[in-house]
Design a protein around this nucleic acid. Structure first.
Lengths: 202, 202
DNA sequence: GTCTATAATGAGATAGAC
DNA sequence: GTCTATCTCATTATAGAC
């Protein structure tokens, strides 16, 4: 580990922390667990960061920057119509949750830890803005790919889609009920499609 | 504190724990903080419970049993029509979140802590069932108060309302944007009202 | 600059006096 | 039955040898 610039150590540790958090949760992301994941000695931690919360701040930045945020775009283009595209995108997200529930739960835990920690309390706002931006781009791409437009501002609809996504995710995490999630996904699709310009059948 | 039956100690401690959790979060609910809140000596804790997780299980039971779950019913009856009733109920819930954000966040934290703790991992299912039951009752009361019916099973609609509620709550907790929450609330109302039997204008 | 060794704190749990 | 005093452990953070 000799001679690694401090900046690289910081990102390496932040990435390692995200891996630990995604696997075992925020509470399990102790400095020991993080340096073990990164293959570094314990003291390297405080060489790169002054505190654990400073590191968690970087972890949220990583999430905000879209580390691992997915490639749903193809779904929007392959679908025969906008409704199918919307449904397929919700379904793809749900599949992601089912494939790695701990990771999705970890995103909630990060937000909530930040909200409880005064120096980090401002970060969730940016985290959610980042989510909305991603969703907004998908909404615009989807509509234009199927010659439709949305009947309300995309930012507003993106916020609604984000709320639906969070709600469906929490529901599945608590219940692990695939059928119920499938029905929620259908209702969410209807709710979104109610806001196309050409009515609900575009 | 002399001569208090063990069962009463358990509920007193669980209530105290819920108070601490609602105020400061799950992570802050140490055995010391809990007994301080309850005005008991530390040893009383392990006299009543074998472990901290056993207590947290009781805390979730308390939440499931509807401790503090509110009295929205009047809103449904006072409103001039079903749409207003639905909107007013969402709005009342949002007011509750804004009045005590820490408490609402604590409910999420409890769920997530339980999901991460194998012996407690089954509790969130019951917690969410309890939420859906409450919402289902409100939906039935609302529809019958305004001579309408829902066009899909009430349980399914209740799950959808719960997802919307969770999503709006998380959104507001992250952003603290009252106007955005207001718009979400309006969209959520539309989405629910799309599932009345007599069309969307009942 | 880097890491071993350790300090300082606060946690959950318990032994044993009353 | 109840509670004081203590144990053991894991944590964050740091001092100081290389």
């Amino acid at each position: 580990m000799s001679r690694i610039p401090a900046a690289e150590r910081r990102t390496a540790l932040a990435r390692a922390a995200l891996a630990v958090i995604a696997r075992d949760g925020v509470a399990a992301a102790t400095t020991r667990a993080i340096v073990a994941e990164a293959g570094m000695p314990l003291a390297s931690f405080h060489y790169a960061f002054t505190s654990r919360d400073e590191l968690l701040s970087d972890v949220i930045e990583l999430v905000v920057a879209g580390e691992g945020s997915a490639t749903f775009a193809s779904l929007l283009l392959d679908a025969p119509d906008l409704r199918s595209a919307v449904r397929a995108t919700f379904a793809a997200y749900l599949d992601l949750v089912r494939a790695d529930p701990a990771r999705e739960q970890a995103m909630f835990e990060l937000t909530q830890h930040a909200l409880r920690t005064p120096p980090l309390a401002g970060l969730p706002r940016r985290q959610y803005e980042s989510y909305r931006n991603l969703i907004g781009k998908l909404l615009i791409a989807g509509a234009s790919a199927h010659d439709t437009a949305w009947s309300l501002p995309v930012d507003e609809l993106a916020g609604f889609v984000l709320a639906l996504t969070d709600g469906i995710t929490l529901s599945w995490l608590a219940d692990r009920d695939d059928d119920a999630a499938e029905r929620l996904l259908e209702l969410a699709t209807d709710a979104v499609m109610a806001h196309t310009l050409n009515g609900a059948h575009a």
